[in-house]
Nucleic acid binder design. Structure first.
Lengths: 118, 118
DNA sequence: CATAATACCGAAAAATTTTTCGGTATATGA
DNA sequence: TCATATACCGAAAAATTTTTCGGTATTATG
């Protein structure tokens, strides 16, 4: 059998449920990349998030498909081609992603000063 | 020297900055507990989140103090007493916590059906 | 006097996530 | 032919987080 997510979504409390869907390192960024609604090929996602190891993006995209946040289409072509699109469920998370993005922008300097290297 | 956070806050992108402040397992729940604004003693926090190992709550509270989301007061008494209060910066994250809480409530059934045991 | 409660910390174990590496297969372009 | 690009996967290593365990010290309670 294929790759298996170790810890499934957290059903103990609504807050942790939401967190568990997006808390891994790159999922929120992936949602942000897919926000526009146009499909992206995996290689595009990799290029947009070059700091992430490609393997993690694969795994996280797969989990997001399983969770229903993203839909995947595989085209039976060679060389292989596939595409990911954000689903309605995924889109419903975008206000949260937006709020986090804005919060980060608004409070960046505080943490720059505090933790910034230079 | 005391406990040191391994990975500090993520300054690479605003979205990851925000995430890095709240993504560890219990931080969002701690913020939710402190939302009211009244101070809580560590033992109270432990009692409110009994699923979390007390040690993690200590560590995460400490990090949240360092990050400025929570303020700590130590009373030089015996037996020891200390209190945590949410700061203005911490409060500014509450709309995000709220949004996640609401999203979790609204979409709970989907994931119950999908991943629920019974 | 023994026990529990208070707050906290270090060290180590366990669990989980992330990264790296190598491999599958086919097509295109130099 | 050789390198590159495509998409994907498994296994193992590395990094990180979470948990468990034991210990400090003092007061109050039975």
């Amino acid at each position: 059998m294929a790759y298996e997510k170790k810890i499934p979504v957290d059903l103990d409390c609504p807050l942790r449920l939401t967190m568990s869907l997006i808390e891994s390192k790159w999922k929120s960024c992936i949602l942000d990349e897919l926000r526009g609604g146009s499909p992206m090929r995996p290689s595009e996602v990799h290029r947009c998030l070059p700091e992430a190891a490609p393997r993690v993006l694969d795994i996280q995209l797969k989990e997001m498909v399983e969770d229903g946040l993203v839909a995947k289409t595989i085209y039976p072509e060679l060389p292989p081609r596939s595409e990911y699109v954000i689903t309605e469920l995924g889109k419903s998370l975008l206000p949260i992603i937006d709020a986090m993005l804005r919060w980060g922008e608004e409070h960046f300097e505080i943490f720059e000063r505090k933790y910034g290297s230079k």
